[in-house]
Design a protein around this nucleic acid. Structure first.
Length: 481
RNA sequence: GGCCUCGUCGUCUAGUGGACUAGGACGGUUGGUUCUCAUCCAACAAAUCGCGGGUCCGAAUCCCGCCGAGGUCACCA
């Protein structure tokens, strides 16, 4: 049975990299009908802990629809799923390692470690612990502990071994054990480091596949060593290529789009985000750029992943989101908009339906709704001066001729108020005015909407209603006069 | 700097020794539809496959070297 996990630490906002890893963990687990996707909270760093960050992690993954089968909130038979609640476990396994000679107590002060590192850097040596405390006798150790001296537990790295990481997308990656540092497993505050906790938990929770970011590849040999020390079976390792910024660096907080919530707040659909993320490292041919999570579950295979670290292209995201929005029914789009921006529910819903059918194909992010549609629900947001200026700029005519052109619209009053008929009348008016089409229509557009880019005039007018149109035209004529 | 990973149009990718005059998508440009924008449609530009050697009748594809980019070297994850 496949069991995968995503293991975020509650140290801030939820990173898009977490969503990326969670997606592949989720998809891979679900290939197995009995597979389980697990969220485990790695809160072993008390210094970086951020209050409330854990809830934000759940919220962001929920928004994406990556729901966990087991987690701190859902529970499960492998719990607890929060590392801070499993401290006794790590302690127990660390002691076991010490007893079997795979780890040792270290009483070195931070000052000694700092001095050592400084010295090594000066001599251009790799900064590593020098094994000073390895030589301590058990009597000395007992004595120091009895004296209440602070200590950490370090891993005893074997001297000359080749450690091979079998990675499902990279093949065999070999490391020499001598370049590995005697990693701290238990900190002086009694908390485990990531390296101990991750191995103990993945084993105890029976994780079959560890799918995580490439930043973990270089510490994988330490983890493999721990599996060996304990005599446990290793999981299948997969190190996903890191997502990058256009500047080729890793996604930084300053770019905004590092946070999952940025995507939500800009008005991207969760399915777009997932599709987009998958698309960046998973090439498909032209007819198959769009795919859902269930498509991914069907087709996913590690061999399809591209190993090079991709750059996130927001322009392509915008395009993709536009396609997803266009494929939504009006009803569905309305639901999404209300979810996105509550006040939209208080608009005239009949009118909203008509508006949406006009702006749907113009919307790339849900956020653009008000920009695209405000004038349907309120007077154009444009000052008198600005309106006059723009109308004259577009008409390229004198104010009096522009007013005259607008007056041709008086015959509209007689119409059955429906786009097709309005359109005919509009063109007839333009004909009569002798003004070229663009110069004739643009001032009307600005008068009605305050904008130079809108859906076709006749459609806009139909939705606006006869009275409102007559009123806005009259206002515009006054402004011009 | 040591170690590890990676390197095809601006970006994402197809490609696993001949069907590659290297294909598609986004973006860009131009044109069509049109009252504007968007949609839709059509076309164009864009990669000497990081560079240099080799193997082979034949290489984006295999080998070597170099260069470049990223990751990692914490009592952070």
């Amino acid at each position: 049975m496949t069991r995968t996990r995503v293991a975020p630490s509650p140290t801030g906002y939820p990173h898009i990299g977490t969503a990326y890893q969670a997606l592949f963990d989720f998809v891979y687990a679900k290939k197995d009908p009995r597979g389980k996707f697990i969220i485990r909270i790695e809160d072993t760093d008390k210094k970086r802990f951020v209050e409330g960050a854990e809830q934000v992690v759940y919220k962001s993954l929920e928004w994406l629809g990556l729901l966990a089968d087991e987690s701190p909130v859902n529970g499960g038979k492998y719990g607890p799923y929060r590392q801070s609640e499993r401290l006794d476990l790590y302690q127990k396994y660390a002691s076991e390692l010490v007893e079997r000679g795979h780890a040792y107590y270290c009483f070195c002060s931070q000052e000694r470690i700092d001095a050592l590192r400084e010295e090594q850097e000066k001599n251009h040596l790799p900064p590593m612990y020098d094994g000073f405390c390895k030589k301590l006798t058990s009597d000395e150790i007992q004595q120091k502990i009895a004296n209440g001296e602070k200590y950490v537990i370090r891993m005893r790295i074997p001297e000359d071994e080749i450690i091979t990481v079998h990675d499902s997308i990279r093949g065999e990656v070999k490391f020499l054990s001598k370049i590995l540092d005697d990693q701290v497993l238990v900190k002086s505050d009694g908390f485990p480091t990531y390296h101990l906790a991750v191995v103990v938990d993945d084993h105890l929770m029976e994780i079959t596949h560890v799918i995580r970011g490439e930043e973990w590849l270089s510490s994988a040999p330490k983890h493999i060593l721990l599996y060996k020390f304990f005599g446990w079976e290793e999981p299948i390792w997969t190190h996903l290529p890191l997502l990058r910024n256009p500047n080729k660096g890793k996604i930084s907080k300053r770019m905004g789009h590092a946070s999952i919530f940025w995507y939500r707040d800009e008005g991207y659909l969760p399915e777009t985000v997932l599709n987009f993320i998958a698309l960046t490292i998973w090439g498909r041919d032209k007819d198959h750029e769009m795919f859902s999570v269930s498509d991914m579950i069907k087709e996913f295979d590690f061999s399809k992943i591209r190993i090079a670290a991709p750059v996130l292209d927001i322009a392509k995201l915008d395009w993709l989101n536009g396609v997803y929005i266009r494929n939504l029914s009006i009803l569905d789009l309305k639901k999404r908009l209300i979810q996105f921006d509550q006040p939209i529910q208080f608009l005239d819903q009949n009118k909203l339906d008509k508006v949406l059918s006009l702006i749907k194909e113009r919307m790339r992010r849900l956020k653009e709704f008000w920009d695209l549609a405000d004038y349907f629900f309120a007077d154009p947001k444009i000052s008198k001066e600005e309106m006059v200026k723009q109308m004259l700029k577009e008409s390229k005519l004198s104010p009096s001729k522009t007013i005259k052109d607008l007056s041709y619209l008086s015959n509209l009053k007689l119409l059955r108020w429906e786009a097709k008929e309005i359109d005919e009348a509009l063109h007839k008016s333009q004909d009569n005015s002798q003004t070229p089409p663009r110069q004739f229509f643009m001032p009307i557009r600005i008068a009605l909407t305050g904008k130079s880019q809108t859906p076709p005039l006749a459609n806009v007018m139909e939705v606006l209603g006869k009275d409102e149109v007559v009123k806005r035209i009259a206002t515009a004529k006054n402004h011009l006069a």
